[in-house]
């Protein structure tokens, strides 16, 4: 598998009233063609900001201050805003958590789909009539692909006329309209009910297999990752703390945070046994000292942890940011 996206040492900072917040601090990641990478973290972990940074969507007061982003051999950070616009939507597409606010309420679904095609698709015929027919056909095809019944007539409807699950499908259809090489799905199912969530996730997996597209699935739900991703990357307080093949990471977590996260999930099978929550709270990202960010909540922490910890090898294809890895085997 060849590498599609390679990010090295990415840093994104937000200047807030009280000081500088390092929302993403030294994140490196790789996504291969056709691969599904799960990105897990709680709010404040920087998982969404990482991908907004990759997409060039961070706006002031936020700024990408460091790192390289190579996509398909091209340097995204070196691109002009115009060039970035060409990449967004055509090569990399993104879906948002809240489909209702992400879709324009004043335009029909058909118009919003056509907009993306017109902006990015050079394969459309040039004749006006032929072009219109081609666009319409593509729109119908995309809606059909994401499983919307009678797409022909629903093209003329507005976002509010669809249910939450249907809107999420429409957003996926818009994201897929130009057959991107990478789909960034930011919490695609958080706003949805379980039965609908299962439908949408299966749809993404299915389309990924058919189109050979890579997917970055951003979520806080380890269950979703376990079922749909090849590899997983766990983030905490702006840093990657553990990464590796999904089965290994979830089956044998090595970083104390990943372990704590897994132990925090209540399961019916654990009835009557006490939960072991991670104590304390996520640290304030402002003015963090260069030391392990998890140490204040970590059961393994000791004074030697108060140094900057790099990602260390933790087995084949696995890395974790912990000095006491040998104790977590």
């Amino acid at each position: 598998m060849t590498v599609l996206l390679e990010v090295t040492n990415l840093r994104t900072e937000f200047s807030a009233r009280a000081g500088l917040v390092r929302a993403v601090d030294g994140v490196s990641l790789q996504i291969s063609r056709g691969e599904c990478l799960g990105v897990v973290g709680e709010s404040g972990s920087g998982k969404s900001v990482t991908f907004s940074s990759i997409m060039g969507l961070v706006r002031p007061p936020g700024r990408v201050t460091q790192g390289t982003i190579f996509f398909d051999g091209r340097d995204l950070r070196g691109m002009s805003p115009e060039e970035m616009r060409g990449v967004r939507g055509r090569d990399i597409a993104m879906t948002m958590q809240d489909a209702l606010t992400a879709l324009n309420p004043a335009l029909t679904i058909g118009e919003q789909l056509a907009e993306v095609l017109v902006a990015h698709d050079e394969t459309l015929p040039t004749g006006r009539a032929a072009r219109r027919v081609a666009i319409k056909d593509r729109c119908v095809e995309m809606l059909g692909l994401v499983g919307i019944p009678s797409p022909d007539s629903r093209l003329r409807q507005y976002p509010h006329e669809f249910s939450g699950g249907m809107r999420q499908r429409i957003m996926i259809a818009i994201a897929l309209a130009c057959r991107p090489k990478l789909l960034i799905a930011d919490e695609p199912t958080t706003a949805l009910d379980v039965t609908i969530q299962a439908q949408v996730l299966e749809l993404i997996s299915d389309i990924r297999a058919r189109m050979g597209m890579a997917v970055a699935l951003i979520t806080h739900d380890l269950g979703v990752v376990a079922e749909h991703c090849d590899r997983v990357m766990v983030m905490y307080a702006g840093q990657v703390v553990e990464e590796g093949p999904t089965e290994d990471v979830i089956g044998h977590p090595r970083h104390p945070y990943t372990r704590g996260l897994l132990a925090s999930i209540p399961r019916p099978a654990m009835r009557g046994q006490p939960l072991t929550p991670i104590k304390g709270q996520v640290p304030n990202l402002m003015g963090l000292a260069p030391q392990c960010r998890f140490h204040s909540r970590c059961p393994l922490a000791e004074p030697s942890c108060l140094v900057e910890v790099p990602m260390l090898s933790a087995g084949p294809g696995r890395r974790a940011r912990c000095l006491r890895l040998e104790e977590t085997v």
Partner: peptide, 21 residues
């Protein structure tokens, strides 16, 4: 059956409900 499971492979089959509420 719609709840994603962690760890052990799903023992039982999976039902997908069609359509919305």
């Amino acid at each position: 059956s719609a709840v994603p499971e962690i760890g052990a492979k799903r023992a039982k089959g999976r039902v997908r409900l069609q359509g919305d509420l």
